[in-house]
Design a protein around this nucleic acid. Structure first.
Length: 422
RNA sequence: GGAGAGGUGGCCGAGCGGCUGAAGGCAACGGUUUGCUAAACCGUCGUACGGGUAUACACCCGUACCGGGGGUUCGAAUCCCCCCCUCUCCGCCA
């Protein structure tokens, strides 16, 4: 959420900034509402002040017949206050609803652009894997090795659900453990295991609501949402809290399944594990002081890259342009892993800084010193990594001429010493 | 799911229509004292919004907030209603 006061004073700047990401909200409507709010507040508060004074006087007066006129007059004042408060509540609701639909302002360093065509490749690691045979897609490999069962996934649940079997299931679990161990033991993150269903406030805090409810799975009988990423529950760990400066920065990691409706992506990535309604992810989340968020984003990116480097999977890093970053993000680096089966780089991690956008929504603050004024923290998060897509990358990059798949060495201890599948 | 108890400031805890933004204690911060540590003593010690001085993010004024929302009243932390959450017992269950 943007700062209403900042918006009030910088309408033109905000408008131009939002335009770079393709958003053209009606900011003049905001101005009118904001002025109306202050007018109402002023009138209501003046009346309340009078009522407080007179009521105190009434309280001190023993003989109530002396103040009967004031009592009658205050009754009218109270009625007027009630009217004003009702309208104020309505205006403030509209104001908040409006602010909640505005996306974040792009970071000053975010490259300008209108679509993913304008994203900037900032680095590559390793070279696309070459083969002396024609590499297979992971879905063919997975079925031949009998570790991925797409048909039965559909039978059990539906399209975009997959059944993992045998070493497939074990490889997924190994990856989760490997990633969590790396981030906790070597990168300084605290492991958490959050709820996979969350309430409306949490979803609003990170920015999924109110605009993207259609993308979320929701439970009917109680108002819960299935998390689309661990970012939601983990960022909300500190919702409505005032942290102390000495606690910062806070690093959390969490493995969770992620649930997404993938509305609007019908027909895209229909085969294989790339786009599922349920997938596993190890997430990294940070709460930091504003002045260190840029440096923390670079460290977060490095932490995610390390996973691929240790697995020896080639990738590139892309700096997303203003037209391609997500609703809540100020700046995002995507890590894209090389997939030989399709001869493309595919997103496997998205590392973003949100500035104070989520902190403002979720009311996450910190105090620099005892008695100091609370300030909003900056929040960041990134995948470290998407587990299903990592398994895909291993299958496709590590496939052998005989149809087997060689397990990256760092994972073998997590697979009971198994060196290859098939 | 049934029955009961309860939700007050960073924490504990009093208040149960006006004198309460809220006693008291703890913690924290600043200071005094003590040869260090500890202790004692003094002071400070919520947040948000609006307005003013005025540009320093400091002070002043006002308003709101005692789980959330509504109601009664001239006046509500205090009375009434609804909801949420926590705890205890029973039931069910991994």
């Amino acid at each position: 959420m943007l700062d209403g006061k900042y918006l009030r004073d910088n309408l033109e700047t905000v408008s131009q900034s939002l335009a770079t990401r393709g958003a053209t909200p009606d900011l003049t409507a905001f101005n009118g509402l904001d002025q109306r709010r202050r007018d109402l507040l002023n009138e209501a508060e003046t009346l309340k002040a009078e009522r407080n004074t007179v009521s105190a006087l009434i309280g001190k007066t023993k003989d109530k017949s002396q103040v009967q006129g004031e009592i009658v007059r205050m009754k009218e004042v109270s009625n007027r206050i009630k009217e004003l408060d009702e309208e104020l509540r309505s205006v403030e609701g509209d104001l908040r609803d409006f602010l909640l639909t505005l996306p974040n302002l792009p970071h000053a360093a975010c490259p300008l652009g209108t679509s993913e065509e304008d994203n900037v490749e900032v680095s590559t690691w390793g070279a696309p894997t070459t083969f002396e045979f024609k590499p297979l897609n992971h879905w063919d490999l997975g079925e031949r090795l009998d570790i991925l069962d797409f048909e039965r996934g559909v039978k059990i649940a539906g399209a975009r659900f997959t059944l993992y079997k045998g070493l497939g299931a074990r490889l997924e679990r190994a990856l989760i453990n490997f990633m969590l161990d790396l981030h906790t033991d070597h990168h300084g993150y605290l492991e958490t295991l959050p709820p996979f269903l969350v309430n409306r406030e949490s979803m609003t805090g990170t920015g999924q609501l109110p605009k993207f409810e259609d993308d979320l799975f929701h439970t009917d009988d109680v108002d819960f949402f299935l998390i689309p990423t661990a970012e939601v529950p983990v960022t909300n760990i500190h919702r409505d809290e005032i942290l102390t400066e000495s606690e910062l920065p806070l690093y959390y990691t969490a493995y969770t399944p992620c649930f997404r409706k993938e509305a609007g992506s019908h027909g895209r990535d229909t085969r294989g594990l790339i786009r599922q309604h349920q997938f596993n992810k190890v997430e990294l989340v940070k709460f930091v002081r504003p002045e260190e968020s840029d440096a923390e984003l670079q460290k977060l990116l490095k932490n995610a890259e390390t996973v691929l480097q240790l697995l020896n999977l080639p990738y590139r890093v892309v700096d997303l342009c203003s037209g391609d970053i997500g609703f809540s993000a100020a700046r995002t680096f995507d890590i894209e892993v090389w997939l030989p089966g399709q001869q493309v780089y595919r997103e496997i991690s998205s590392c973003s800084t949100f500035g104070d956008f989520q902190a403002r929504r979720a009311n996450i603050r910190f105090r620099r010193e005892a008695g100091g004024k609370p300030e909003f923290v900056h929040t960041l998060n990134g995948s470290g990594l998407a587990v299903g897509r990592t398994l895909v990358a291993i299958l496709e990059n590590c496939q052998q001429a005989d149809g087997s798949v060689l397990i990256p060495e760092v994972l073998r201890p997590y697979l009971g010493g198994v060196e290859k599948i098939g």
